[in-house]
Amino acid sequence: MYRQLKQELIDYSKEIGIDKIGFAAADPFLELKEKLIQHQELGYASGFEEKDIEKRVNPALLLDQPRSIIAIALAYPSKLEKAPKGKKGERRGLFCRASWGEDYHSVLRRKLAMLEAFLQEKLPDVRFKSMVDTGELSDRAVAERAGIGWSAKNCAIITPEFGSYVYLGEMITNVPFEPDTPIENQCGSCTKCIDACPTSALVQGGQLNAQRCIAYLTQTKDFLPEEFRKHLGNRLYGCDTCQTVCPENKGKHVLKHAEMTPEPEQVKPLLEPLLSISNKEFKQRFGSMSGSWRGKKPIQRNAIIALAHFKEESSLPSLVQVLNDDPRPVLRGTAAYAIGQIGGAEAKQALNLALSQEKEEDVLFEIERAIQTVHSML
């Protein structure tokens, strides 16, 4: 009975646009537990994860008497068609691929809800708990056990069909589905992702120090430590470096889900207008993207750092306005940093004026350091 139901569920998943589905036992993830404890002790956690390690590794704490876990994967595009080109005076930022199109949490939750309804129709007594990314379980650990793909050195799940360009979700259930066979790790001796990581966040294959990961750093709301600023480039949210250098991702580009189609002006926006965007405008323009979940402040801070990266002189008036008028110390201080990177007489004058008016200690520190930078250029 359950073997037939499994096949029916697989067939139905294809009908509703799920690209891969796999089944895993609901046993505790004991090996993962050891890694998570070590990860925490080393200070490598991002802080966005579920704090209770037991809940992350024991499905029985999330659903009474679980018998299996259903894992799903949806492929997302890796290429931006008709991408607008940034140029002097019109510099652009970039949202990572996982933020293209509609927020993937919403997309996958809809798919999981359809699977739930399908199971309920077949088995009225079925119980389940579904989650996407923000749930307690590790999406990657479940996907690996369910045969969706292997857990790679870049800490992503790599599928033979779509590379690592997949979103993951899962459903714990009391239905005893037969588990699938995991895929053998195929990274071999390749270390391209480790070698290419801009901040050396990939400590070793399969171990990530999230505190150094640009994808994490772009989501923080405080001052970005100076050692990371020049590594940010024009990234507004996320980082794809460890994916784009991966040989398994070469030639992988899937655009089969309309809701994941990237809107060029949305995912590669002009930087300068972001500095003065209102909350309402930000929600209207970017609110449907997963990259907007932390609000506009991190995006604006990153846009300022991107303008510093380009040393965009035409943005000086806008940056000076942020330095003088923005109520948020992080943005004022980051604007001072950018003005210092651009340099010149106008920058020096603006920084000296701000120094005489600013009261916030952290901002004063940034202004003084920016003045030193300008002096070193003259």
Rank of each mutant, 00 (worst) to 15 (best):
Q7F: 05
S292T: 08
W100G: 04
Q186K: 15
P327G: 12
A210E: 02
E170Q: 10
L274Y: 09
N352A: 08
Y76G: 03
V57W: 04
A308D: 05
I194K: 15
L63D: 09
S356V: 03
R140T: 06
C197H: 01
V374I: 06
A60D: 13
D133F: 01
N209T: 05
Q219G: 13
E272R: 13
F29L: 04
D325H: 15
R294C: 01
N174F: 08
D362M: 13
F177H: 09
S46T: 03
S13T: 06
Y2K: 03
D11M: 02
Q300H: 06
P198E: 04
P59E: 02
L274A: 12
P327E: 04
T220I: 14
Y167G: 06
M289S: 01
K85N: 11
L217F: 11
D125I: 01
M131H: 11
R332Y: 10
K14S: 11
S68E: 09
S189F: 03
T373H: 13
R109A: 00
P269R: 00
E346H: 00
H253P: 10
M131L: 05
D103A: 02
V57Q: 06
Q207H: 05
V175H: 04
E49C: 02
D52M: 05
G206P: 11
G17H: 07
Y165T: 01
I21A: 06
K283C: 01
E184T: 14
L42T: 10
L123S: 06
A354V: 13
S106K: 15
E90Q: 12
A45F: 09
Q65R: 14
S106H: 13
V245K: 12
N279K: 15
L137R: 12
E184Y: 04
A338W: 09
L123E: 15
K6M: 05
R140A: 11
Y2A: 01
I21D: 12
L63A: 02
I371S: 13
R212Y: 03
S99L: 00
Y104H: 14
P269E: 00
I371D: 05
D139H: 04
Q372S: 14
T181Q: 15
V203W: 10
P176F: 02
A354T: 07
L112I: 00
P198V: 08
V126P: 07
E184S: 12
R91H: 14
E15T: 15
K297Q: 11
Q266S: 10
D103I: 09
E116L: 00
V166L: 00
L63H: 03
E366W: 04
I277Q: 08
A24I: 09
V267R: 11
I148E: 00
P28T: 11
L270R: 10
V57A: 02
T220R: 13
C239M: 07
T334H: 09
E102A: 07
G291F: 00
R97I: 03
V107I: 15
G344N: 10
R285A: 10
K153A: 15
Q357A: 08
K33M: 07
G343Y: 00
A370D: 01
G291T: 01
A215Q: 01
L217T: 01
L217M: 09
P179M: 07
E259Y: 08
G22V: 01
D195A: 14
Y44F: 14
N154V: 08
Y44M: 11
L270G: 00
P124Y: 14
E184K: 15
K230E: 14
G22T: 01
A117C: 02
T244S: 14
L30N: 15
P262G: 04
